[in-house]
Amino acid sequence: MTEGETTALRLDRRQVLKWFAATAASTQLSEFGFAAAVPVVTAKGYGTDPELMKIYKPGDFWPLTFTAEQRKTVVALADVMFPEDHLGPAASTLRVPDYMDEWISAPYPIQQKDRAALLPGLQWIEGEAKKRFNADFASLSEAQKHALCDDICGAAPVKAELKKGGAFFSKFRSLAASAYYGTEAGWKALGYVGNISLPTFDGPPPEVLAKLGVEQTVK
């Protein structure tokens, strides 16, 4: 514009880019072909400028989803996948079920997709526990839990009629692992050493260099 001119502001609210379009369908078909309808998440996200310094916990930004029954199933299954052993505590003591609940309750596309897989999957595994052992999953003996999990974990080819369960198990394991290893105990279990300020950075210790057959080249 030239000095002295004015412009009239026009408001234009046309939504043009929809790359991150929120999924707002009233029912969603699960990725794995479960037929159950999943309740829709209508909460808001944390926004583009959240307070970064705070330490958060699941439920701080959006309401959680799991019913008491669902939570029982999640705790039991997460602890089968990440039990207490020589490599660390059980998943439920590290709040892994809470993080999973936060995840599937989040109003973002990736999480909504996982929600549509996870919630019907919990129903499926409960149905399977009833069918095989006439009990809910959390009440099964360790041997019974393992018998069920062994069929869907993928160590051996998963039978055609259990494919849905296999896909659910894989997704659940991946999410539980994402949460388990985001904790201090999980770091220890994995062998991550860091996130602590140091006066110097000394590079890999001699035993690591020896194992790899390399020398430190930066003196």
Partner: peptide
């Protein structure tokens, strides 16, 4: 020094961040 467990969605990318 926030660990993934300290922040929403374990610090994974979202449409907001």
């Amino acid at each position: 020094f926030h660990r993934p467990e300290h922040v929403p969605l374990l610090n994974t990318p979202t449409p907001d961040k």
